[in-house]
Each structure stands twice: as C-alpha cells, then as structure tokens.
C-alpha cells in the first residue's frame, strides 16, 4: 500500500509543471472570481489528478505487474481512495489559504463557510469517477462519464420539470432546511459526501476483485 502511494506521488510529480500551472490558475481565480467558484474548481482538479494515476497504471498494460507486487485488488482500490482523499484535502487547504491571503490583500470579507460546504464535493466527484474509471478503463470510461454526468444534469432538469408541472410546493422543505441550525446542514452535506465516497469505495473493491490481467 505504501509502495502504491509512493508510486502515485511519483507519477504525479512527473507533471510538476502542470501542477504549478494549475496552482497559478487557482491563484489567478482567487483574484478575479468568487471564493465559491474556486471551491468548485478544486474538487474537479483533485478528482482529475487522481484519475490520471489510474490511467498511468493501465497504460502499457501496467496493472498486471502491479498485482504481482504484494498488493491485493482491495489494497489497490483503497489506495486510490486514500490518494484521492489526500489530493482533495491538500487542494482544499491550498485553495482556502489562497482565498484567505487574497482576501487580506484586497481587504475584503471572505466567505469561507460557503467554501467549506462546496469543497467536500470532491468526495462525490471521486466517488462517481473512480468506479467508472476502474470498471471501463481510461478510454471507455470517458464516454461512461459523459453519460453519467449527463444523466445527473438530465435528472435535475427532469426533476425541475416534474415539480413545475405537478405544482409541487417545495417551500415547506426549504423553510425546514433554512430553519435547521447551520452546523447541522453543513454536517449533513459533509456526511452525504462521505457516505457516497465510502459506498463508492466498496463498489470499486468489488470491481477490482473481478478483474483479470
């Protein structure tokens, strides 16, 4: 497991210039955009970076060799989630730091709370992307991801249409959420993300255990 983490950090470090560039973009966004935008940007980046390491593993048929090491299918899946978690947390911390520093420089109030609510979305992003990537491989998973994310958006629109046409009044639910203590809402949001992440991990373990090389 430690060996796999070491490998992934080394693979990522091969693209150091790429990451410096990304950090540059985050800093630039920090100056021009709202904190919540940066908060949404970081999870996507963290998820894409961790997915990249799976593509590297698959490239040149590398998976077969990895499983001759003292590594079981389940270890591989768990390691990817740990690696993703590390990237997500580091990315989140970095973006908060940038927003704070820029807030100080521009002498503006910073909406850290909103950021803290959006940043954990990386857990859901990875939770959706990892099993798809592991199941379908680098090439096919791209199509699968379009389908999945497209369906999510589609379902959203459909839901909205249904609510509109059926004249369902969501106000009571929204008022209820609004009346809940902020901390509880925040905790629920984080919890939902964590649950998706953990359930996804178990799905990924099952996917890996079925694979042959």
């Amino acid at each position: 497991m430690n060996g796999l983490l070491e490998k992934d950090f080394r693979l990522i470090s091969k693209r150091l210039t790429y990451f410096v560039m990304l950090a540059g973009i985050i800093i630039f966004l920090g100056f021009s955009a709202e904190a919540s935008f940066i908060a949404a940007y970081v999870p996507i980046l963290a998820a894409i970076c961790s997915i990249t390491t799976i593509s590297y593993d698959e490239f040149d048929n590398g998976m077969a060799y990895l499983f001759t090491l003292p590594v079981k299918a389940r270890d591989y899946a768990i390691e990817k989630y740990i690696f993703g978690l590390i990237l997500g947390l580091v990315g989140s911390a970095f973006s908060i730091l940038i927003v704070l520093i820029i807030g100080k420089i521009k002498n503006e109030a910073v909406d850290i709370e909103t950021m803290l609510l959006i940043l954990p979305v990386f857990l859901t992003m990875m939770g959706i992307m990892f099993p798809i990537e592991l199941k379908f491989g680098a090439e096919k998973s791209r199509i699968a991801m379009y389908i999945v994310f497209g369906s999510v958006v589609g379902l959203g629109i459909l839901g909205k249409k249904i609510i509109e046409t059926m004249n369902i009044d969501l106000t009571p639910i929204l008022t209820k959420i609004n009346s809940m203590p902020d901390a509880l809402v925040a905790a629920s949001i984080v919890l939902i993300n964590v649950i998706i992440f953990v359930v996804s991990l178990f799905i990924s373990i099952k996917i890996m255990e079925k694979k042959e090389y």
């Binding site: 430690n2 060996g3 040149d60 590398g62 060799y65 001759t68 003292p70």
Partner: peptide
C-alpha cells in the same frame, strides 16, 4: 519475484522512482 513480458512499472518512472517504490513495498 516476477518478470512479465508485457508489463512493468509505468514507463513514465525512472529507476530512482522504482527504487523508492520497492523500498516501501518489500
């Protein structure tokens, strides 16, 4: 110990990387 004809560590890595990975693996 294994050698596979068609598979090894990612070819993006170098032997220094391989050394560090092995150190943490075995």
């Amino acid at each position: 110990g294994v050698v596979l004809s068609d598979s090894f560590f990612s070819l993006e890595l170098n032997l220094n990387d391989v050394n560090r990975i092995l150190k943490k693996t075995y």
